[in-house]
Amino acid sequence: MVKNADLAYQFIDSMPYARALGMRLNVLGDGLVEISMDYDSSFVGDVNTGVIHGGAVSALMDTCCGIAVICHESAPRSTATIDLRIDYMRPATPKQSIKTQAECYHMTRNIAFTRATTFDVDTSRPVATASGAFTVERH
């Protein structure tokens, strides 16, 4: 059982920006979470192709990595992004929902290290990957 799972769902529910983008959280295990987001025409970055903007993907990446930190087995109280790097591999297919999976793969007393991958329906080819360092607030 993931110690902070309830807190993680609570975080997402109380986060106005997550609601604005329609993010849905699924806690998978210790330090491992996934968030999905439906396609919406207001997220489009290129009207000629209907491809969503990278900025919508970065919100998903940042949230997912942060929640992965909260869900680490050491159960941090809170976290904040120090830095985030995103690589865009290919455009997300228009009209398809996207899903980000993030893991907190290393934890120290004060810092958490995370990485994440975003896919659309085709889970064999990533849309984008990210890595980020986060602050850790403990009890």
């Binding site: 986060m15 106005p16 920006y17 997550a18 983008l21 903007h53 990278g54 900025g55 919508a56 970065s58 919100a59 998903l60 990446m61 940042d62 949230t63 942060g66 904040a80 992004t81 985030l84 995103i86």
Partner: peptide, 12 residues
Amino acid sequence: IHGGVTAAFLEV
């Protein structure tokens, strides 16, 4: 402000 908003703003 959400980090995703800040990131999107910088990218835009």
